[in-house]
């Protein structure tokens, strides 16, 4: 429908105008966020102007000093880095095996694993909380997980549910399934080991997949709120998302500092996304649903 001759001849401007308008609408809240962050506290309440009269960095210094934002950055960095690393390995090799190294029952296993992606977070929230508490040998616990606080209120507890996202197994299988098997057959006849076939033949072709998994994992873990809210009880295990909510405490919201903190917290995901966006959006279309 979009390739009809008439459409091809039609001018692009109306279309571009509509899309530009929608883009502006979608980005408007972010522009206000930036504007507020540079507006002096107190002025934000009086009248609205997109460009602050006297831009100030005061809100940023307030944000960085308060709300344990620095500790939160350190914790979120560790948790996200570990989760990105494990997610770029464990689900990827599993997806590869499901696509190219079938074994008895592999199909059933694949569907079982992938269907867990649909389990609501709230079903596993409380059990995971109790499991973190009773994690053996952590936080003063004995082998049976008794006696201490386990992984609660610790960086280890924060990363517990993020290490393997089942969605990534699905994406990986889809991606590898789209690759030719002849490469492997040829290598096998040459006597290459399975590990070598994977690392030398298929993995180098899977960079868009790795990019997709990395970006998904990074944003998913960095942005999560409910699990940290439950598992972190003190400043030492706070995360960036928890830290920004402390600026919005009941009734007395400091919008300037809040927006400054929100910007600081959003910059890393934004950078990861923008640096990868072309491959990311391409990867989405290739790894996505087919047929």
């Amino acid at each position: 429908m979009l390739l009809t001759r008439r459409a091809r001849r039609s001018r692009p401007w109306p279309r571009i105008a509509v899309l530009a308008f929608v883009t502006a609408l979608v980005l408007l809240p972010f522009l206000w966020m930036i504007s507020l962050a540079f507006t002096k506290e107190g002025q934000a309440m009086s009248g609205i102007s997109l460009i602050p009269e006297q831009p100030t960095l005061e809100n940023f210094s307030v944000a960085v000093q308060a709300a344990n934002l620095r500790q939160a950055f350190a914790n979120s960095t560790i948790v996200t880095t570990v989760a990105v690393a494990t997610n770029c390995v464990v689900p990827v090799i599993a997806g590869y095996a499901f696509a190219h190294l079938p074994f008895r029952g592999s199909k059933v296993l694949f569907y079982i694993l992938v269907s867990t992606a649909a389990i609501p977070v709230s079903v596993t929230l409380i059990p995971l909380f109790l499991m973190a508490k009773n994690f053996p040998f952590a936080g003063g616990n004995d082998v049976l997980g008794q006696g201490g606080s386990g992984l609660l209120d610790s960086v280890g507890g924060l990363m517990l549910p993020y290490l393997v996202a089942t969605m990534n197994i699905f994406l990986s299988r889809q991606y590898f399934a789209g690759m030719d098997r002849d490469f492997a057959e040829a290598a096998r006849i040459d006597g290459a080991s399975e590990l070598r076939i994977f690392t030398r033949v298929y993995l180098p072709m899977a960079r868009p997949l790795i990019a997709l998994v990395a970006v998904f994992s990074f944003t998913g873990v960095w942005d999560d709120f409910l699990w940290p809210l439950v598992v972190s009880t003190s400043a030492k295990s706070t995360t960036v998302q928890l830290a920004i909510t402390t600026f919005a405490s009941t009734g007395n919201v400091k919008y300037g500092a809040l927006m400054a903190a929100t910007i600081l917290v959003s910059v890393p995901v934004l950078l990861v996304f923008l640096f990868n966006q072309r491959g990311f959006i391409a990867g989405l279309s290739e790894g996505g649903i087919k047929g």
Partner: peptide, 16 residues
Amino acid sequence: AMYVPHVISLTAVSMI
């Protein structure tokens, strides 16, 4: 540009 709201956390956009 359209994808940006999806990348920014729900916490952050709720704040805005």
